[in-house]
Structure formats: structure tokens, C-alpha cells
Simulated scan of single mutants.
Amino acid sequence: MPKAHFYLIDKPRFREQPLLLVCELAKKAYAANVPTLILARDPAQAEALDDLLWAFDPDEYLPHQIAGMDADEDEAPVLIASPDTDVPLRPLLINLRDAAPQGAFERVLEVVPADPAAREPLRARWKHYQTLGFELKKFDM
């Protein structure tokens, strides 16, 4: 059964820099040896994530790259894709876009903004995944 996990931003460090939570989630996936695809909202967010993944943990390098930048992207454990790139889905998706991903995957992680006004699209996605029979979980971060 596919899973959809919603991570609600709450802690001050994630409120200040929501993409830090994305880095933490990608780091956990990499440690578990799960190929991950981050669905960035736009090319600027993809670039910001790329920069942050280089710098967020000074003690550990998290291998990653932006889709469409290199021929061997299939080998990158963490791949960042903006909407203008067409890449195959991976077992784990971290979705930062407004729409739910379409296609076959095992698990999707949705990052929920701290701002209650920005949460409406995520409520709709929760219902969407529920309709599709996903196992749903919510975590306060």
C-alpha cells in the first residue's frame, strides 16, 4: 500500500528555513538507501535546495543533483526536479509542488507550511491520497 506522510512545520528553525526540513528528510532517506526524488516548485527552489544540501550538514556530504544538469543523474541518490524537467519517479518522493504527483511510487512526503493560510492545498491532497487508498500519517516537525 502506498504511503503519504505529511510533515507539519512547527519548530523555529524549520519556520525560518522550511527547506531545512526537506534536507533532513532527504538525509534520512539517503541513510536508509532509498532513492529519492524531490519535486521542487520551480527552478529557483531547485537551485536553493541544491545549495542548501551542500551546506546544511558540515559533517556529511549528501550526494544529490538537479535533474537535467548531468548525464549520470540516475546514479544520484537524491535528485531534485523542477516542473520543466521530465524524470522517472523514484520509490520516495518529497513533494513541494501544489499538485499531488501522478504515477507509481511507494511513498510521498508532503511538507506542510507553518502558515495556516498556505495549508489549504495540502488538505485537498490529504483527501486525494485518502481516496486513492494511501496509508496516511502526520508528523509535527
Rank of each mutant, 00 (worst) to 15 (best):
L92F: 02
D70L: 03
Q102D: 15
D98H: 09
A99P: 09
G103D: 10
E75M: 13
L93A: 07
Q102A: 15
M69R: 08
M69D: 02
D72K: 15
I80D: 03
P101R: 05
S82T: 10
P77W: 03
L89A: 00
D86F: 06
R90V: 00
P83I: 13
T85G: 00
L92Q: 04
L96W: 14
R90K: 11
Q102V: 15
P88C: 11
R90C: 00
A100T: 08
P91G: 04
G68H: 01
S82W: 05
Q102P: 03
M69F: 01
D98L: 12
M69Y: 00
R97M: 14
D72Q: 11
D72T: 08
P101I: 05
P91T: 04
E75P: 08
R90Q: 02
L92S: 04
E73W: 08
E73T: 08
T85W: 03
D86N: 14
A81R: 02
D86V: 10
D74Q: 07
S82C: 10
N95A: 12
R97D: 10
M69S: 10
P91S: 09
E75Y: 06
G103R: 12
A81S: 10
A99I: 10
D84G: 09
P88G: 08
G68C: 01
P101L: 08
I94H: 01
E73G: 06
R97T: 14
A100M: 06
D84E: 14
D84A: 12
D98S: 08
L89H: 04
G103N: 14
R97C: 14
I80C: 05
G103T: 14
L96P: 13
D86L: 14
N95E: 12
S82A: 13
A99T: 14
E75R: 10
D72I: 12
N95T: 11
T85P: 01
A67G: 14
P91H: 01
A100C: 07
A71S: 11
S82G: 10
D70C: 03
I80R: 02
G68I: 00
L92C: 03
D98R: 09
D72R: 15
P91C: 02
P77E: 12
A81E: 03
R90T: 01
L92P: 04
I80E: 01
R97P: 03
A100D: 13
A76I: 05
A67Y: 07
A71K: 09
T85S: 13
I94C: 00
